[in-house]
């Protein structure tokens, strides 16, 4: 009796041929673990959330009748009585977040080499960068609130400025916070040897989330602070 079940592809071809192989294979469309596939799908869905936020922001910015406050002036800090430097805090925050993507990538690398100690350390470093990002964001919020920015109004112009600022940075900040918690949990489990048998894909999955959160920040930075 001929076995007509389609056989599994054991090695992947590249390019178009690989795409066709993937989609016509049985069992698995993508040669990745379940968790990773699921994370990818979730991130695409989350992209839609942030896109809607940003589109909403651009719409209210154009629909509001009052002038939009100038970000370069609002987000400026002066150190020790110097002239205010525009966007300096945001620049540092962005730099930190991007650096944390680097440490995350290293963690993934050490994970696949099964170096549990280095993996966990690098993940914790990543989490620490994330936590400091959130800390600086809290500082920025406090500063703006003392200057009189509220979700429903601010001293400089369109009330939507504050609404969008708190909503979008808040939502992103929640993502970073969730990521810090997620990283810490996984790092702990890595050290405890939880993944010795299952493999260290989870580190990469966590990394996917983390890189995504960074990438989203780049867009928020560009559209909210630089525009």
């Amino acid at each position: 009796m001929s076995d007509t079940a389609a056989t599994n592809i054991t090695e992947s071809r590249s390019g178009m041929a690989g795409l066709v192989d993937d989609w016509t294979s049985d069992k698995q469309t993508y040669h990745v673990p379940w968790g990773k596939a699921m994370m990818w799908i979730f991130l695409v869905s989350d992209t839609f959330i942030f896109t809607c936020f940003l589109v909403g922001y651009m719409t209210v910015r154009t629909s509001t009748a009052e002038p939009w406050p100038v970000p370069a002036e609002v987000f400026a800090l002066s150190f020790f009585g110097s002239d205010p430097i525009p966007l300096i805090l945001i620049a540092i925050m962005t730099f930190i977040l991007i650096t944390s993507s680097g440490t995350m990538a290293l963690a993934v690398n050490y994970g696949y080499r099964k170096d549990k100690r280095m993996t966990a350390i690098l993940m914790m470093v990543t989490a620490a960068f994330g936590a400091s990002f959130v800390g600086m964001q809290a500082f920025e919020w406090t500063k703006l609130i003392t200057e009189g920015v509220r979700p429903w109004g601010n001293p400089w112009g369109a009330p939507q400025f504050g609404s969008v600022f708190f909503m979008v940075t808040g939502f992103h900040g929640l993502h970073v916070t969730a990521g810090v918690i997620y990283l810490s949990i996984v790092a702990r489990k890595v050290i405890k040897g939880h993944y010795d048998k299952k493999g260290f894909e989870i580190v990469e999955i966590t990394g996917l989330y983390w890189h995504f959160v960074d990438l989203v920040w780049v867009f928020i930075f560009a559209f909210f602070y630089l525009w």
């Binding site: 209210v60 979700p151 939507q160």
Partner: peptide, 25 residues
């Protein structure tokens, strides 16, 4: 659903703020 519900979620969040915080989205 995974790509469309986000728009509802975002509009629900924004409307909640209009309702409770007095924003004007």
């Amino acid at each position: 659903g995974l790509f469309a519900f986000p728009a509802l979620l975002v509009s629900a969040i924004m409307m909640t703020f209009d309702l409770t915080l007095g924003t004007s989205f």
